[in-house]
């Protein structure tokens, strides 16, 4: 087992823009249409150049660090997205098909999978390790495992950011993600955070599992969004309820996630 604490959390979708709105949505509140995403952390000049994928990630990463009260320069980062920035891939592949020499240099450097952690490190001044990974439909499990192992082995807080974008039309042939969803969990080694939200245990089991059905929140199940299988665990975190979740990790392995709360701390209520 790999044992860490969850010290902070961030979440964003077009239906809830932060943890409080997510909790309201769980309680049945009707969502208002979200405004433009403007992560304060990125300076306005940079924000204009930053793609939506980066703004989503940096927003939830910032939310998680603020909730934890942990300085952004003290955390390593693991960014996980199964499909990456499909909007930029769509732009680049369309441009290459029509007029390849017209590829925008800014969009090209923004196309790297580690763009979000790049902007994050520039905005925060953090020199700590920054990772960017994909495990396709298993990205949530792989990213949480990678982050937790790093947190324990290196004894450093690891900010795990997860996001998927809506699929542009040509990508609908292979993935039908309709709505974006991003979340970030700040995982800390045991004893690091004074008042963590919850304890998270991760265990790897050598058998295949099916992806659990996503729960419906705020009128959507976030169909075919690879982040959505984490929603039941996030809901349990919001309710302060112990829970277990099994997520497929690879074709022959399953990640068991167990969420527990110290008796006194229904801290996610904070």
């Amino acid at each position: 087992m790999t044992d860490v604490d969850i010290a902070g959390i961030g979440i964003w979708s077009e239906r809830f823009a932060n943890w409080d709105e997510f909790r309201d949505a769980l309680a049945g509140a009707t969502p208002e249409a979200a405004g433009a995403l403007k992560p304060e952390l990125i300076p306005a000049r940079e924000r204009r150049r930053a793609p939506a994928a980066v703004k989503m990630a940096v927003e939830v990463m910032d939310q998680a660090c603020r909730m934890a009260g942990i300085d952004a320069t003290d955390v390593a980062t693991v960014f996980g997205s199964g499909m990456g920035d499909m909007q930029i891939t769509d732009y680049i592949c369309r441009t290459l098909a029509d007029a390849p020499r017209m590829v925008s240099p800014t969009k090209f450097h923004n196309s790297v999978h580690n763009a979000s952690t790049g902007y994050w490190s520039i905005a925060t001044g953090s020199h700590l390790p920054a990772n960017a990974i994909s495990a396709h439909s298993n990205t949530v499990a792989a990213s949480l495992l990678e982050g937790a192992v790093q947190a324990v082995e290196e004894q450093v807080p690891v900010l795990v950011a997860l996001e998927e974008l809506a699929a542009p039309q040509p990508f609908r042939s292979v993935i039908e993600t309709e709505e974006p969803l991003a979340t970030a969990l700040l995982l800390t080694p045991k004893g690091h955070a004074a008042a963590p939200l919850a304890a998270l245990s991760l265990g790897v089991r050598a058998e295949a599992a099916d992806t659990p059905a996503a729960m419906e929140i705020a009128g959507t199940g976030f169909s075919d969004n690879f982040v959505a299988p984490l929603l039941p665990l996030l809901a349990a975190l919001a309710h302060g309820e112990a829970s277990t979740t099994a997520l497929p990790l690879s074709s022959g392995s399953t990640l068991d996630l167990s969420l527990e709360f110290a008796t006194a701390a229904k801290a996610a209520q904070a």
Partner: peptide, 17 residues
């Protein structure tokens, strides 16, 4: 690589340029 080798443990791809 996972499909062609039959390796069954955890698997991920790092993409940091």
């Amino acid at each position: 690589v996972q499909e062609v080798t039959g390796i069954r443990g955890p698997s991920l791809t790092i993409s940091t340029a």
